[in-house]
């Protein structure tokens, strides 16, 4: 079981009885099973999960493109959807960063400023919540058959998004979470800290540059020889895996399946005993 290096970057509450889940718009349409896997995982631990049907998108696409008023209007909807003083667990690092770092700025001087600051304080990224607040441990109970891969240990390539790594400072939490999964060997690609080239509308507005970055990341990812790739940011997942698949079609590399981190966690929970507050006296 890996030890987590470094002090936490912000104060964390004790494990709560009840949480909100923020699915995010990309998980909603493209990786919904990851959201359900997270919900089931939390429920299995006895945590009540609220999934507000009123949630939509954090507003980041417009904010990053310089459409501040449009972003604010969308963010306001999330203030309403997650109004009660309950921790919010977010399925993606970049959306977490948007809510945690940007909402207070987005609503500075607006009537909702206080609500935005309140929401920012109780918003946590998925791995951050599992490691820093729940401090989960997975005790192997000898049923290792994770992901149906016919091998006692699977090699998982971890991609930590730039917003998770730099925006939220959670690279260590990401690594720790993967390292705690039984039967998983974590590998990371060359130039691990470099951006995959997604960057939201950047991928469309500067398509050539984005494609060049994605190409390099996909090749580096394929070179790890991992059985599958994981991340908690779906923009990166779609970008890297989409590029990898096309490169495979062109015979340039061998692509690998991708899974959201929450899916890996839920699969691990099927074959192990999950404990909360592991190692704390």
């Amino acid at each position: 079981m890996s030890q987590l290096a470094g002090a936490p970057r912000r104060p964390y509450p004790p494990a709560p009885q009840r949480i909100y889940l923020m699915g995010t718009c990309l998980v909603d349409s493209f990786y919904p099973q990851a959201g359900m896997d997270a919900i089931q995982f939390f429920q299995q631990l006895g945590i009540e999960v609220i999934f507000p049907q009123a949630q939509t998108c954090c507003g980041q696409p417009a904010w990053n493109s310089g459409y501040e008023a449009e972003a604010r209007a969308v963010a306001r909807q999330q203030l309403r959807a997650f109004a009660e003083d309950i921790p919010v667990v977010v399925m993606m690092g970049s959306c977490t960063g948007m809510m945690h770092h940007e909402y207070p700025r987005l609503f500075a001087g607006e009537p909702e400023e206080q609500a935005a600051c309140g929401l920012a304080k109780r918003t946590y990224e998925f791995s951050e919540f599992l490691i820093r607040i729940l401090n989960v441990g997975f005790h192997d109970i000898g049923k290792t058959n994770l992901s149906g891969v016919d091998s006692p240990v699977i090699k998982v390539a971890l991609h930590t998004s730039c917003s998770t790594r730099r925006g939220m400072g959670l690279a260590a939490e990401h690594q720790a979470l993967v390292d705690r999964l039984p039967g998983v060997q974590r590998v990371e690609p060359e130039r691990v800290t470099e951006c995959c080239g997604f960057g939201g509308t950047f991928a469309v507005k500067q398509a050539d540059i984005s494609a060049a970055m994605a190409h390099d990341k996909a090749m580096a990812m394929a070179a790890t020889g991992a059985d599958l790739m994981t991340s908690a940011d779906c923009g990166c997942l779609m970008n890297i895996s989409g590029t990898m698949q096309l490169l495979e079609q062109q015979g340039q590399c061998q692509a690998m399946p991708v899974k959201h981190l929450a899916t890996l966690v839920w699969e691990a929970a099927q074959s192990s005993r999950v404990v909360v507050q592991e190692g704390e006296a």
Binding site: G23, V27, D28, S29, F30, Y31, P32, Q33, G35, M36, F51, Q53, A207, A211, A214, H215, M238, N239, S241, G242, T243, Q245, L246, Q249
Partner: peptide, 14 residues
């Protein structure tokens, strides 16, 4: 141009 098209899931998380 440089990626395979991602496919939306059969049902949304909502």
């Amino acid at each position: 141009n440089t990626r395979v098209m991602p496919k939306p899931a059969a049902s949304s998380l909502h």
